[in-house]
């Protein structure tokens, strides 16, 4: 198992590296209470198959990475990613894929380091704003409220579909809430932006949204924060697109990424 100290924290990293030493680097960023497994079981191998140097890692406090008590704000997460890329010796712009909170981290990374990102794919994510942070915390509180009641967990969207997964998510929420300052850190105003200026995002962007998700109901407002971008709506799906619609996510992601790869190589995209 590969661990790397990045930004002072021991992070669990897995790399799927093709033989081509010039393969463009691509980082997968998972969501809150999740791990890199959400990609490993779904699109990671296919993305590596396109010829990308795929880097997956567990965020601090998650999976097999270290769980320090503090440092769970969006800028801590982007500092961790910067440290990780430095330690791995990855120079030049990276392609980023983020799910949920991971997408929010990717947006912030692209905002802070506009020359550091070649392209951005976000799944069920929005840029970090004060309103976003308030909603994220409401979601965590909602999950926490259900923690002690198995029947309540079973009634949640996820619990009805995959009880084992819902039980684990609630347990992880409890562990993180007790052992870390995650809830306080996420609502910390550092890294949250209320009004994004024109041109704040310079890389190509693909936004993937579940047709029945809460985020979809605010899609116009979110797109309003962004430069012109590609949007794919997966009908009939809620928030957990990687878990429940991996085929649809792959169908959106793979051709889009292949075109970005070919553009970089100077070839004409089909």
């Amino acid at each position: 198992m590969a661990h790397i100290i990045a930004n002072g924290v021991r992070l669990h990293v897995q790399r799927m590296r093709p033989a081509d030493p010039g393969a463009p680097p691509l980082v997968l960023i998972h969501g809150l209470l999740d791990t890199m497994a959400s990609y490993y079981f779904t699109i990671a191998a296919a993305v590596a198959g396109l010829g990308f140097d795929v880097i997956a890692y567990d965020l601090r406090g998650h999976g097999r990475s270290e769980r320090p008590r503090q440092g769970y704000g969006v800028d801590d997460a982007t500092d961790d990613l910067t440290g990780l890329l430095t330690e791995l010796g990855v120079a030049g712009p990276v392609h980023l894929i983020g799910f949920s909170w991971g997408g929010t981290v990717a947006f912030r990374f692209a905002h802070r380091f506009p020359d550091g990102v070649a392209s951005l794919i976000v799944i069920e994510s929005e840029p970090p704003t004060v309103a976003w942070a308030d909603r994220a915390i409401d979601g965590l509180r909602e999950l926490s409220a259900h923690l002690s009641d198995a029947e309540e967990v079973a009634r949640t969207e996820l619990g009805a579909l995959v009880p084992a997964m819902a039980r684990r998510l609630t347990r992880r929420a409890r562990e993180l809430a007790v052992a870390t300052t995650l809830v306080e850190d996420i609502t910390d105003r550092t890294g949250l932006v209320d009004v994004y200026p024109d041109g704040w995002l310079r890389c190509p962007l693909l936004l993937i949204v579940g047709g029945d998700s809460r985020l979809h109901s605010r899609l116009d407002a979110i797109v309003g924060l962004l430069p012109p971008c590609d949007v794919v709506v997966v009908p009939g799906q809620h928030h957990q697109l990687l878990a429940f619609a991996p085929g649809e996510v792959a169908a959106a992601v793979l051709p889009w990424l292949a075109a970005r790869r070919d553009a970089r190589a100077g070839a004409v995209a089909p």
Partner: peptide
């Protein structure tokens, strides 16, 4: 945990070679 399967995948590839692709198998 799902992340335990990821780690097992790494160990399998170390033991049997990169032809053992747990990510591909699970995908």
């Amino acid at each position: 945990e799902s992340i335990d399967l990821v780690v097992l995948g790494t160990l399998l590839a170390e033991r049997y070679g990169s032809g053992i692709d747990l990510a591909g198998f699970l995908s």
